Simulated scan of single mutants.
Amino acid sequence: MPTLMRSNPEHLLAQQAALARFGEFALKSEDLDTILQEACRLVAEALGTSLAKVVALEEDGQTLTVRAGIGWKPGVVGGLSTHLSTGSEGLALRSAESVVCQDLAKETRFAVPDFVKAHGCRACACVVIMGVDGRPPYGVLQVDSLRPHAFGEQDIAFLRSYANLLASAVGRLRANARLRRKADDNERLLRELQHRVKNNLQVIVAILDLQSRQLRAPESRAALRSVGRRVEALRLLHDKLHLSGEVDELDLGEYLAQLSASLLSFHEDGTARVQLALEVERGLLVSPDQAAPLGLAVNEFITNSLKHAFGEGLGRIGLTLQAAPAHRALLRLSDNGRGLPMPRPKTGTGMRMIESFGRQLGSAVHWTSDGTGTRLEMTIRLRGA
């Protein structure tokens, strides 16, 4: 194999172009083995050698494993290990310097590994792939030649450039892996917290219900059950998040449909005399921070309708949720009861709470009321809007 003309300007430009393309590739790829293998292919091609490899230093600080390579027989890449005390790779890592050998048959600084001899290698050049953020070196990048070969300073500088790119890629991918592990751990902890919150809220709901049944005064019993309904709305929210496996979004239609049906069951005669009409579009996603005030607003509207709209007669409560332009959703609540008294009361706790939840969501609350019932409309920003 002829020796390359290192001083050829065209050859220098070709090396620089190849290095630039590899840099872009290393930045985009998320697979370290692919990056290492491509580096081996390119340096072997550029320096005119038949073989190249990346040898990784294992966590024990003593074992070297061939992680990637080109030109080697099956079983070498990914399956062969040597000790730090042997080979040009070990010498480079121990000395933190590049190692060049023009003729392995005359080498006295290190013992040549058996697999290198078996392949007929006669010359080599290797550089250290440094660690980042204070970590130990990752390993070495090495080219091997099947005949004595005069590797020059330009060759070593070229190898160092690749090694530096590999060090950056290793650091980036390791940092990404740490971030993913941390994110997974945080998500798992958050799901566990949601599960515990849901269970605790369920206990609170049960206690409030038990206490309300023991109270004799109707006003006190009603007030305690009203608190229980609000807690139930939050419990159901955490239940939906836990069951869906998500921590930052949920299907608003499913949540409000289940919540409104649950609210009727809280009233002793609600399901017997009041019909619930649901028209909800699925797949409209909101964050838990949005779902909580929306659920409480629905709770207040349905509770007020059951208490004031129908008297002792039959009634109908409607809940409609549908997609709206500009990544919004339109929520309509209605009943066919007697309507709000005019002028509209300003002291009602439920209405004040609903309007407060609307402000929290950045949504105006529109009321209409006549002799045929009461209606409420809110426009909600969906997740990602």
Rank of each mutant, 00 (worst) to 15 (best):
A177V: 02
A177P: 00
A177Y: 03
R178F: 06
L179S: 08
L179C: 05
L179T: 11
R180L: 09
R180H: 09
R181F: 08
R181H: 10
R181L: 14
K182A: 15
K182L: 15
A183P: 03
A183K: 13
A183L: 15
D184L: 11
D184M: 04
D185F: 08
N186F: 12
N186R: 13
N186Q: 12
N186K: 10
E187T: 08
E187S: 08
R188D: 00
R188F: 05
L189T: 06
L189W: 04
L190R: 11
L190F: 01
L190Q: 12
R191N: 01
L193Y: 01
L193F: 02
Q194I: 11
Q194A: 04
Q194S: 04
Q194T: 03
H195I: 02
H195E: 13
H195C: 05
H195A: 14
H195M: 08
R196Q: 14
R196S: 14
V197N: 01
K198I: 00
K198V: 00
N199G: 04
N199Q: 06
N199H: 07
N200C: 13
L201G: 00
L201W: 01
L201S: 00
Q202K: 12
V203F: 14
V203W: 09
I204N: 01
I204L: 15
I204G: 00
A206E: 13
A206P: 03
A206V: 02
A206G: 10
I207R: 13
L208G: 12
L208A: 10
L208E: 11
L208F: 12
L208K: 01
D209I: 06
L210C: 07
Q211Y: 11
S212V: 04
R213M: 07
R213K: 11
Q214Y: 07
Q214K: 08
Q214A: 14
L215T: 03
L215I: 13
R216F: 01
R216A: 09
A217S: 11
A217E: 15
P218D: 03
P218M: 00
E219P: 02
E219W: 05
E219I: 05
R221S: 15
R221T: 06
R221Y: 02
A222Q: 15
A222M: 06
L224E: 01
R225Y: 05
R225H: 11
V227D: 07
G228V: 03
G228W: 05
R229H: 04
R229Y: 04
R230V: 01
R230T: 04
V231G: 03
V231S: 06
E232D: 09
E232M: 12
A233I: 03
A233Y: 04
A233G: 06
